[in-house]
């Protein structure tokens, strides 16, 4: 288990991370969310032991992180890039050995991953000769080849086409089953929503909300409906029971006022426009994100 207790990092005159605590258990994907400049990268760097915290502790399996901790972590930074002139196999072997892997094991593992990621034929090519997607795959492999206990992924899906995103998702889910601790930092709220069981939302270095995602959703309020329709959307947006509406021309996410009843609202608008779909939903992570950040910034 990874425990971060009261983490604070101060750079000269700015507090980049302000008293943040969280826990990640094995077999869970933890979402570290927040707008740009919120302190996510600093948090990640501190967890990875790249920089030292000003205050606070980082415990791994109840012990402070030591030098050997390097070999237990895998990191995929947001900005990608590898040695352009390096060969695919050499590059992966280099990073594997830096994580203390034996040459032989690293070589065998590399080939398993080449197969899994469908890039066997590029083994002896230079990185610069590969497509962007395939370069990303090489970098992903180099982050996970040593079977790390803690995996930190910063925007792991960016730069991948939908098919490859699916491939990475499947790999991540297999990691969940094998009991890795996974920390995911992303701006794709729908992905985070689907993958993460716990989240930490930070803004300006401070915690905005944290905990189990389904509990956060419950506590955030109910009365959310999703509606698809044909016709004039202004009829919906002017309805008196609406507290808030996100309107997408023939689709809308709506938060009703606390005393309004969803079925009464449906009956009311169904008489005016053609409703093709109506459902009562939990608030989306996207909405929680936007609302909480706005609130915390004010």
């Amino acid at each position: 288990m990874l425990e971060v207790k009261n983490l604070t990092k101060i750079f000269k005159d700015t507090v980049a991370v302000d008293n943040i605590s969280f826990k990640i258990e094995p077999g869970k994907i933890f979402g570290l969310l927040g707008p740009n400049g919120a302190g996510k990268t600093t948090t990640i760097r501190t967890v990875l032991n790249i920089i030292k915290p000003s205050f606070g502790k980082i415990l791994f399996d109840s012990k402070p992180t030591a030098k050997t901790f390097f070999n237990l972590t895998g990191y995929l930074p947001e900005e990608r890039g590898l040695y352009k002139k390096g060969k695919v196999i050499d590059t992966i072997m280099y990073f594997a050995q830096l994580k203390n892997m034996e040459r032989k094991t690293a070589y065998a593992e590399a080939h398993k991953w080449f197969k899994k990621m469908e890039i066997e034929k590029y083994e002896d090519k230079k990185i610069e000769e590969l497509s962007k997607g395939n370069q990303q795959k090489v970098q992903f492999i180099s982050a996970v080849i040593h079977n790390p206990k803690l995996l930190i992924l910063d925007e792991p899906f960016s730069g991948f086409d939908p098919i490859n995103q699916q491939l990475i998702k499947e790999v991540l889910l297999s990691f969940v089953i094998s009991g890795k601790i996974i920390m995911l930092s992303t701006h794709q709220m729908d992905t985070a929503e689907k993958l993460c069981s716990d989240i930490l939302l930070i803004n300006n270095g401070k915690e905005v909300c944290s905990g189990n995602l389904s509990q956060i959703k419950k506590s955030y309020g109910t009365n959310f409906v999703k509606i698809e329709f044909d016709g004039d959307s202004s009829i919906i947006s002017s309805h008196p029971s609406i507290l808030h509406i996100d309107n997408y021309s023939n689709y809308a996410e709506i938060q009703l006022k606390e005393d309004a009843l969803p079925y009464e609202f449906l009956r009311d608008i169904a008489s005016k426009i053609n409703v093709t779909h109506f459902s009562i939903v939990e608030p989306t992570l996207n909405k929680i994100f936007i609302d909480s950040i706005k609130q915390s910034s004010n």
């Binding site: 030098k67 890039g81 830096l98």
Partner: peptide, 17 residues
Amino acid sequence: VEEKSNRLIEILVSSCT
């Protein structure tokens, strides 16, 4: 400069001091 611009340096210093 190359390692800094593509953040390889971060992978390196997350693997060694």
